[in-house]
Computed example of a mutant assay.
Amino acid sequence: MRPIPYGRQNITEADIQAVVETLQSDFLTQGPKVEEFEQKFAQYIGSKYAVAVTNGTAALHLCALVLGVNEQSNVITTPITFAASANCVRYCGGTIWFADIDPATGLLDIDKVKALLESKPKNFFSGIIPVDFAGMPVNLEAFRALANAYNLWLLEDACHAPGGYFVDSKGVKQNCGNGDFADLAIFSFHPVKHIATGEGGMITTNNQDFYKKLLLLRTHGITKNPELLHQNPGGWYYEMQDLGYNYRIPDILTSLGISQLSNAAADLVQRHHIAQRYDQAFKNLKNVTILNPEAYQEKNTDGHAYHLYIIQVPDRKGLYDYLRQHQIFTQVHYIPVHTMPYYQGLGWQTGDFPLAEKYYEHCLSLPMYPTLTAQEQQHVIDKILEFIDRT
């Protein structure tokens, strides 16, 4: 049996042909495929606007800029996330504050966030960055109500959750990144994500002013739009109106994204089938704990996007090594951000967030990708059960 990674891209012949057609076209970058991808992704998510960029980290950085993060900003996020969720605030000179997780879901615990808000003066904090960790949607309706009470912005890190959703208090399905509650949301198109472009990211929003600002900052702060120019001596003319960045994504990658997007719904169904098989295999094992969607949203368990399938076991290192011996390459998501040397240099330390740290000690991400076969998955399950029986 071939080696089994925790994640793998699925590149079809149609994907390859889409890229070849772009390579044979007049535009490799700054062409029509970028806008086409943005429009189709916004339609898929349900947002008014979408802005494609080089990667998810660039997306976070631009969002922090348009939200006005600066040296006076204090922003809350979860320690169980990729470092970029916090780093984007530091890029702009702001200060990151962490709040602990709900151990049943791995998500940022809104009660812990509320306690943190209450511990500081009313206008101390600027915003919150909740993360749809592993593909499980954050209840943004509840976070929006909390943010409104403290005059905060919300930036949804939805890198794990394209196609995911939660059901709000009115019974309405709220897609991750649709902009109904968060001011901005971001996605990643890294190869192990739902939609792969190699590298790439997307920002979604319903705020037109944010949208226009993002377009400007994405390309050096430069515009050629005649409606925005201070003067217009000729067709060659452009203006740098802000200090922006080269965060443009090329047409080569967005043509792949368009093709990948056409399979996103079917791939999400397959992720659910894989998750259900894992659930059945592990649900009655006392030494295996799964992150439980029902603990988060009893009305609906279908909205999980299942970027990751995570279990927790007493001997994580032992299981990790045992599976590697059998060519099963699992992963750990994530090392708590506040324990990283950089953030410890800013004053955070081990012991600050015991629930996140306990989760980290036991968590393991199992293979989860649409082309994982039933035979391969059963092999993974069998080896896990073998290890549990031995210990």
Rank of each mutant, 00 (worst) to 15 (best):
R2I: 14
P5K: 12
I11L: 12
V19Y: 14
S25T: 03
D26K: 15
L28Y: 05
T29H: 02
Q30H: 11
G31L: 07
K33T: 05
K33M: 07
F37H: 02
G46Y: 04
V51Q: 07
G56N: 07
S73D: 02
T77R: 06
T81G: 02
A83V: 02
A84G: 04
Y91E: 06
G93D: 12
T95H: 15
I101H: 15
T105V: 05
L107V: 14
I110Q: 15
L117S: 13
F133R: 12
V138W: 04
F143T: 14
R144E: 09
W153S: 09
A158M: 11
G163P: 12
V167I: 14
D168P: 06
G177W: 09
A182W: 07
D183P: 13
K193M: 15
G201F: 13
M202F: 14
M202Y: 11
Q208T: 10
D209C: 05
F210M: 10
F210K: 03
Y211D: 09
Y211V: 07
K212Q: 14
T219P: 00
W236N: 05
I252F: 05
L253K: 07
T254D: 00
S259L: 07
A265T: 14
L291W: 00
L291N: 01
T301K: 10
V313H: 05
D315V: 03
D315F: 08
D321M: 06
Y322S: 03
T339Q: 15
T339A: 10
P341N: 10
G347E: 12
W348P: 00
K358F: 14
Y359P: 00
Y360P: 06
E361L: 11
E361Q: 15
L366S: 00
Y369W: 11
T371I: 15
